[in-house]
Design a protein around this nucleic acid. Structure first.
Lengths: 527, 527
DNA sequence: TTGTCTCCCAGAGGGAGACAA
DNA sequence: TTGTCTCCCTCTGGGAGACAA
């Protein structure tokens, strides 16, 4: 085995698969807002930004110069480095090449939270049928038992061999030989996720997402513009080998440096650690501006999607905006960071999240009994409210591809194909699995199926269509579902037809917004 | 287990035991010569010293300010940091406190090169009786079988538990339970050495010396004055854990910086990695001056003790000085570094050691049939040859304590006690073991017992007397020994008495020289 | 005295179907 | 479909004496 001390860069496809559904990074050329206050929350020590930030506008519109993808040499966890240029007009980088985008979309991955049986060192890995069918090479089912050896590459380039067998009564897919070694070497425990990923050529990759991650550990990952990446690994124990919590941290100096650079309009770089429940600090311009168009008033009812860590799932929490926040919600020019003060209905759960960002929450109802659906004031590129104003469903992070929304008029065939995945027997079960493509797609925190018992096309072969990302979580336990409904940002969509695609297509009139958000929803893991 | 990432400092006693017999460090206050040319040989890349060194005097007399002892967090190997001040008159540090010296001398250690049986993961560790008797706690031999659990601390403070049992027919001491885990965790292989060490309070320590060490690896241990210690561990492999060769290196920059500092009379620091067969570059002033007093002439016969690495043993190689070297041997003011060119009798063995330092070799005979014993010209502290000149045996690295030479008149009781160790059955065997105290003592390369079958005091309890360091190597295979002889620097000492202490005491008339050399023989591992 | 061998037992590792959720 | 259980086999780990160097 080769030394794996060097900092490795990853292809975006692999990176995205391993980073997980809540990890979103912008693309070179995108416009974003950089919030030093949010950046500061990621630092291991509170940086002093008082001398750097302008009181009236403590955030910066930036152009994304480049995004690089890395892997921690110790824990296998991934992170990204984002180069930003506050001089938004000077950008002349070429946008993402079409073939690159195509490649991204043909990466397919499947993630599974390890069960105790999976993580026990005595046993194997129970492979969900979906993963076996769509990610792994096809088994020869004529053999008895059907068995093959699969070679999977981890983020360091190391090859792991697993015995993949289809056996038992009833039959199921298992990884046996090799799995135990993998578990012990990677120090996996129940609750961690493994991600199997197949690139366009059929090569398999395996990644890891660990539970119980806390960004601000004692180990400092220093990074400041112009200096080389320095790192402390900090994950090694003399007798135990790897420590599970191999924390990175962002130094407070690097935050101050980034903010200073932004202030004086010089390019800078930030590191992004995809971790659940951490608010993003580099956010898509359109997303921010759309959120700022919402009439956030005291007394308004909001809800927020929270991904818990163990096991990975999404829960919705409701609350009421109180009047302690920034009271001039509709004005630019004050700190937007955590400007919304919310009294949560279940304060014990969100006791540490008193103040949230507008783009983290959805308006459920305004104090004056606003419509249930979220209202948006679209703004033009100058940040001024546009005259167009209408009710719509804000679907962040949704690519056009899954439902062919990048074509107008909107086709329904793609939607049927892909939504049919929801309506197989696979969906209504209580699972903790994520199937993602790596181009964005529908994120777990955006699209939550509830009470979905759509009628099922019997052909299961549709499931390995590329261009999808969704998450099946505990939130979609079946339990006597009403037929044909889906929830999008709190809106229960009722389907009276077995094919629900029309409901979706009618709900997405604003192609421009959708597209920009699919490319750049937000940076940061929290949603 | 606690994290062991930090650079740990060690007590000298433990450090010395683990560093091995050839590892010698000066004491604060000592006068030494610093040879940048020798320092350069330790660098991972050849430093350019041409602009720094004075052609006529490319070495520097320095005062030792302090010596600190460290352990590599990955490999358990030890190294030292030596602070030097070229301004020798400015020194005002207090010399080593007496109680510290006393503590050093009461450290006892025993090293054993692992046999294949020891290092096989299937088995235990065969404990030499001597180690069990003198280092380990006493077993209760009335039990059947006699067994105890011993707790041993490694250089990181981790405690290892071993089951120590005395069993088998015939009976022998073994470490069973716990040993295998230790071997695999430390990645020990046959040929590595373990060092068991007992401090004055009876606490046990265990250290490691690995074979196949090469200082100049790809990993750079940068150290330069005024900067913090930076280190790359470089010993970790993704799937294999520790790599065996976790090399440190000295950067070429640090060598140049040290030489520059010496040149401009500013204090600096160097790192010393105790490795066998590496020539020292910080050498005791007295040792250098004594060596320069020897009439090294072309054609003179010399011999040199060489410690091989696998297994650890000392061999003497003979050769003849040829005329290619520095031809003005007796003059100061030219580079002394490797000034002696030697044609070795066995060139194939020492093909890489064409040129040696005067203090590495002994004069066997001058071209004009000089006496066999090495002649010394003692010099006063100004470096001028003193008028006193007489034959003597140069015993570097010998403390006064083993033979009570620090008392005058010299007692013989201590000598009898300690020399009796040589004359037990333990000695004449072919072993690869080292028993050391940690105050210097007689080093393996200084005192080699040959054909020693001194009569034996039957009381084996004498063997755990502190205050000794000696090495029993393959060089002392028994094979029909003549009775009562010992070889010191080539001189065969014949003992006509069963107690040979008189021979020793008569051979050491120069207490001053002995004492200074016991405190500061040389820095560097080669001898 | 101690290095190495073989023997042999206990227990971990892990591969299989049963069965239930 | 898949999580967990139990069964049971295999193999390694490692503790013991035999025996020879």
């Amino acid at each position: 085995m080769a030394l794996s001390r060097c900092i490795r860069t990853l292809d975006y496809g692999v990176w995205k698969a391993f980073a997980g559904g809540s990890a979103r990074v912008p693309t070179a050329g995108d416009l974003v807002y950089y919030f030093p206050e949010g950046h500061a929350e990621h630092a291991i020590a509170p940086p002093d930004l008082s001398s750097v930030l302008h009181r009236e506008k403590p955030f910066f519109l930036c152009r994304v110069i480049s995004v690089s993808f890395f892997v921690h040499p110790g824990s296998d966890e991934v992170y990204a480095r984002i180069s930003l240029d506050p001089n938004v007009n000077a950008f002349n980088a070429s946008p993402t090449r079409p073939e690159e985008r195509a490649e991204r979309e043909s990466f397919m991955s499947f993630s599974k939270v390890l069960t105790p049986s999976d993580a026990n060192n005595g046993g194997g890995f129970s492979v969900p049928r979906f993963c076996a069918d769509s990610i792994f090479p096809k088994l020869d089912y004529k053999a008895d038992p059907p068995v093959q050896s699969i070679s999977v590459q981890d983020v360091h380039g190391n090859i792991w061999e697993f015995r993949h067998v289809y056996r038992g009564t009833p039959r199921r897919h298992l990884l046996t030989t090799g799995w135990s070694r993998f578990v012990s070497n990677k120090k996996l425990v129940a609750g961690d996720s493994v991600v199997f990923c197949r690139n366009p050529t059929g090569k398999l990759f395996v990644g890891i997402r660990r539970i119980g991650r806390h960004c601000c550990g004692s180990i400092n990952f220093n990074f400041s513009p112009g200096t080389k990446l320095r790192y402390n690994n900090g994950f090694f124990d003399e007798q135990e080998g790897f420590l599970r919590n191999s924390n990175f941290g962002i130094s407070s100096e690097s935050v101050v440096e980034a903010a200073k650079s932004a202030k004086i309009c010089r390019p800078f770089e930030v590191l992004y650690f995809p971790k659940v429940s951490w608010p993003e600090f580099v956010v898509a311009k359109d997303l921010v501006e759309a959120a700022m168009a919402v009439p956030w008033g005291p007394g308004a009812r909001v809800k927020m999607a929270v991904e818990t860590e163990e096991p990975l799932r999404t829960a919705w929490y409701h609350g009421t905006i109180c009047c302690n926040g920034n009271e001039e919600f509709d004005r630019w020019g004050k700190s937007l960071w955590r400007m919304l003060q919310v009294n949560w209905d279940e304060p014990e759960v969100l006791q540490n999240i008193k103040a949230v960002n507008p783009w983290q929450v959805e308006l459920v109802s305004s104090p004056s009994s606003y419509p249930v659906m979220k209202r948006l004031k679209l703004m033009d590129t100058n940040g001024l409210p546009s005259e167009r104003q209408e009710d719509m469903i804000l679907v962040t992070g949704l690519t056009s591809s899954p439902f062919n929304l990048n074509e107008s008029p909107i086709g329904t065939q793609g939607a049927r194909h892909n939504l049919s995945i929801f309506s197989t027997n696979f969906v209504p079960e209580s699972t903790k699995q994520t199937y993602t493509n790596n181009a964005g797609g529908i994120n777990a925190w955006n699209l939550v199926t509830t009470r979905s018992t759509f009628s099922t096309p019997e052909d299961g072969s549709n499931v390995d269509q590329p261009g999808m990302e969704f998450c099946i979580t505990d939130a979609c336990k079946p339990t006597k579902l009403s037929k044909g409904t889906i929830q999008l940002f709190g809106k229960i969509i009722h389907s009276t037809e077995t094919n629900v695609s029309t409901d979706f297509s009618l709900s997405f009139p604003h192609k421009l917004l959708l597209e920009s958000q699919s490319r750049l929803p937000a940076v940061g893991a929290c949603k």
